Structure formats: structure tokens, C-alpha cells
Computed example of a mutant assay.
Amino acid sequence: MSRRDPVVDLREIARLLERHGGQTRRAQTFRRAADTLAALDADVRADLDARRGWGTLAGIGETTNRVIAQAHDGRVPDYLADLQAADGPLAPPNPVMAALRGDLHTHTEWSDGSSPLEEMALEALRLGREYLAITDHSPRLRIANGLDRERRLAQLAEIGALNEALPGFTVFAGAEVDILDDGALDGDEDTLGRLDVVVASVHSKLAMDAAAMTNRMVAAIARPRTDILGHCTGRLVAGDRGTRAQSAFDAEVVFEACRHFGVAVEINSRPERRDPPTTCWRWPPTWAACSASTPTRTPRGNSASASTGPPGRPRRGSRPNGSSRVGSRNGWPSGWRSGPRGGDSLGFER
């Protein structure tokens, strides 16, 4: 029986873990093991194979060692076989899935993702996508290994090289940027101005007062560099990070601000998020978990994370679909107010 490549099997396990369970940390374990094996000198690798000594390597634990041994013996590793048996479409065929052309919110191993940038792009190609935005975290989110200016510029160079290597496919340079307490964006203006896509998200003080959270989110939406409002409630419903309650805010005001300023509202479909929840979109709306009050009309906004919009590299700092900004967006939206409930517009004023 011919040997299998354990590096390939370890990476496939990591891919399937992320694809179906949002198990990023566990996936990282398998991907690190693959990287450890791949980096070995050929003679060292041959010696380890001969004496089945893979478990002596740093980063190779009991489970990953078993995967390597079974692949070395020419077997499909049991761990991989179980994942493959459970694999299947993430959703039944539907018009939305058929229309998807790209994804505008992704993380790589540059921040808290577990996949290399190149591997992300190749997976997008495998899925039939036309473009992919790389939106690793901004510097303030240290727990997620956010990119400072120096690392961001290095990543921009790597993205440029990848675009040269993948004709017919576009990798957009982006960032998921923290919304600070006052609604400012985390990052210097020059660095943000070099990006194609900016996803603005709240990652701190998620339990703040609903009125304060509403002001904070609207202020960020009004910033000229904001293209997409990310995972607006911040909730976690599954996955290896546990669960987290969603934030409270006036969803009618926030989504109307997005409509007014041409900012997309992300539909984050990762299994552990599924954000915003359906309570934010039903008609008649039931907003108790999102709002400080109950509005009487349907919010209007755009979906973003997986996009049906046209590809093609946008102007730096503009949205990929080329839609124009509306109104003044210089800092805090002073003078904004919500109009009468049930009206056609919340009447954002300048």
C-alpha cells in the first residue's frame, strides 16, 4: 500500500474543521503539525519516518501523531475519514448561494485565522468565487494578533504578489477595524486609506448601555472609511469560544444610518455567529434583543460578508460595489436624530 502525504491530510482536517464547526483553535493544531512536518529537511524526515518518531517533534501531539502514522501506512486517517463522512453542502441549493461571487470578511493566520493567505485564496477559487477580501484585525485587538502599520504594509505587499500570481481572481486588501468607545476607527488614516475594504466592528464593552452603543455604532458608520458594519450584535451561539449574549442597540437607527451612508450590513454566516439574528429582520420586526425600543417598520440595509456584487478592484477606501457615500461623514455625526417611528426615513441631519 502506497503512503499518503500526512501534510496534505493534516491540512485537509484543518479545512474541514473550520468549514463545518468554526473550530479555529483545533484547526490550528492540525495546521501547525502540518507546517512542522513540511519544514523538515528531507534526511531528518526520512529518519523520523523510519523510526516512526514524529511524536518527538514539538507541536505533534497524540492525535496528530496518529494521523501522521496512519497516513504513513497508506490509510486514510480515521480522524479525516470521520470528517469526510460528515462533509456535505453547508446549505441546500438556493438562489442566494448560487449568486455568491465573493467574500468580504475573512481572517488569515496574520491575525486570528488559522489559514495562510494563499490557502484562503485557493479555497475561494475552489468554491467558484471571483474575489476575496482579506480583513485581518486592526492593532488594538491584541488578543486576536491585530496588525500594526508595519505588518499591515507587509501584508499588502503579499496580497499584491498573490494578485499577480492568480490572474482572473482578485484578492482585496482590507481590515476588520475596531470601533472604539467614541465611534472612532482603530488605525491611522494613511494605513486605512491604502485598503480596498474596511469592516468596522465592535469587539469591546459589548454589554454597554443600548443608547450609548447606538451612538457608538452610528458614529462609526458615519466615518468616511467605513464600508461594512461587521457582526452587529457581537453574539456567539456555538463554537470553541463558548457563547456570548448579543449587544443591545436601536437597530432601526443603526440600520437606517447604514442605508443613509451607503454602508453595508454584514450577514455573518460563520456557524458560531449567525449575526444579525433573524429577530433583527423579520416582519413585523421583533427587536427586543437588539433595540432599546420597538420600531414599527422594516430596516433597510445591505448584506455584505458573502457578496453577490461585482468584482474588480475598487478605488482605495471605497466599497467594492462602487456605491457612493451619502452626506457628510467627518467624524462624529453631530446633529443626527431619529425621525418619527414609522416614517420613510429616520431623518439623519447635518
Rank of each mutant, 00 (worst) to 15 (best):
Met1Ser: 13
Arg4Gly: 06
Arg11Glu: 14
Arg11Met: 11
Arg15Gln: 15
Glu18Met: 15
Arg19Met: 10
Ala27Lys: 05
Thr29Gln: 10
Thr29Phe: 14
Arg31Ser: 05
Arg31Thr: 02
Ala33Ser: 12
Ala38Ser: 03
Val44Ser: 08
Ala46Thr: 15
Arg52Ile: 01
Trp54His: 05
Trp54Lys: 02
Gly55Leu: 07
Thr56Asn: 04
Leu57Ile: 00
Gly59Cys: 04
Ile60Trp: 02
Arg66Lys: 10
Val67Phe: 03
Gly74Ser: 09
Val76Glu: 14
Pro77Ala: 02
Asp78Met: 10
Asp78Asn: 13
Ala85Tyr: 11
Ala86Ser: 12
Asp87Met: 07
Pro89Thr: 10
Ala91Lys: 10
Pro92Arg: 04
Pro92Glu: 05
Pro92Phe: 03
Pro93Tyr: 14
Asn94Ser: 08
Asn94His: 07
Asn94Phe: 02
Val96Cys: 07
Val96Tyr: 15
Met97Asp: 15
Ala99Met: 06
Arg101Asn: 03
Arg101Thr: 14
Leu104Ala: 07
Trp110Thr: 01
Ser111Ile: 00
Asp112Trp: 00
Asp112Ser: 00
Leu117Tyr: 03
Leu117Arg: 05
Ala121Pro: 03
Ala121Phe: 02
Leu125Cys: 13
Leu125Gly: 09
Leu125Asp: 04
Leu127Pro: 07
Arg129Ala: 12
Arg129Trp: 15
His137Thr: 04
Pro139Val: 00
Leu141Tyr: 02
Arg142Leu: 07
Asp148Gln: 05
Glu150Arg: 14
Glu150Lys: 11
Arg152Met: 12
Leu162Lys: 09
Leu162Asp: 12
Gly174Trp: 15
Leu180His: 02
Gly183Ile: 05
Gly183Gln: 11
Ala184His: 10
Ala184Arg: 12
Gly187Ser: 06
Glu189His: 12
Thr191His: 05
Leu192Glu: 04
Arg194Asn: 04
Asp196Gln: 04
Asp196Arg: 05
His203Glu: 06
His203Asp: 08
Ser204Ala: 07
Leu206Gln: 13
Asp209Tyr: 14
Ala211Met: 05
Ala211Cys: 03
Ala212Pro: 15
Arg216His: 11
Arg216Val: 02
Ile221His: 09
Ala222Glu: 01
Asp227Ala: 12
Leu229Met: 07
His231Cys: 05
Cys232Asp: 08
Thr233Asn: 03
Gly234Lys: 09
Gly239Cys: 06
Asp240Phe: 01
Thr243Val: 11
Gln246Thr: 00
Asp250Cys: 06
Ala251Pro: 00
Val253His: 02
Val253Phe: 00
Val263Ala: 00
Pro271Trp: 08
Arg273Met: 01
Arg274Phe: 08
Pro276Thr: 08
Pro277Asn: 02
Thr278Trp: 15
Cys280Ile: 13
Arg282Leu: 14
Trp283Val: 09
Pro285Val: 14
Thr286Trp: 14
Trp287Val: 14
Trp287Glu: 15
Ser291Val: 13
Arg297Ile: 05
Arg300Phe: 08
Gly301His: 09
Ser305Asp: 11
Ala306Ser: 13
Ser307Val: 08
Thr308Leu: 08
Gly312Gln: 06
Arg315Tyr: 13
Arg315Glu: 15
Arg316Asp: 03
Arg319Phe: 12
Gly322Ile: 03
Ser323Arg: 13
Ser328Thr: 03
Gly335Met: 08
Trp336Tyr: 13
Gly339Ser: 06
Gly343Val: 11
Gly343Leu: 06
Ser345His: 12
Ser345Lys: 10
